[in-house]
């Protein structure tokens, strides 16, 4: 699989896919997309990078251990649920805040934070699985 073409293209392809995954994640609330899909896209991107260039560069590129990313995502999602605590509403109630930038309304919400948490969990867990399987060559 490690052909020269594939190896040359893979880093660009990966960055494009990660970028796209973030796009899919953020638009998820109003268009098809969301944390699960975005996470899977990013995880596939890392898997492709791993197949093309080996596991070590991927691990360097994402810097954190994939499971740490996953755990961070779970933490973030839980926090998003707990935002409702000081506001005296039940756990996981969506809370909204509207910001205006140059006449464009942006909805910021605990739901968005939750979805980003989902994204991280899926990216972390599945990248970890894929990388762990890919690097089995070395044992």
């Amino acid at each position: 699989m490690r052909t020269v073409i594939f190896r040359t293209v893979a880093p660009y392809l990966t960055s494009l896919m990660v970028l796209f995954s973030i796009f899919v994640l953020l638009r998820g609330h109003n268009e098809p997309g969301g944390g699960f899909i975005g996470g899977l896209i990013a995880a596939s991107a890392f898997a492709i990078y791993g197949i093309a260039c080996g596991v070590a560069p991927v691990r360097r590129a994402i810097y954190f251990h994939p499971m740490a990313i996953s755990a961070f995502g779970l933490f973030m999602s839980s926090i998003a649920g707990m935002i409702s605590l000081p506001l005296s509403v039940p756990f996981m109630t969506g809370n909204w805040m509207q910001l205006s930038f140059f006449g464009v309304d942006i909805d910021l919400s605990s739901v968005l934070i939750f979805d980003i948490g989902v994204y991280f969990v899926v990216v972390g867990a599945i990248t970890s699985i894929a990388l762990a399987l890919e690097e089995r060559d070395r044992d």
Binding site: S70, L74, S77, F91, V111, A125, I129
Partner: peptide, 29 residues
Amino acid sequence: HGANVVNVIIVDFRGTDTLGEIAVVMVTG
């Protein structure tokens, strides 16, 4: 405040459920 009903169900209406599900994903990892 969401137009994509599927996503709204996942992250908002059934958010606690989804929290459990992503926990499962992480544990499998």
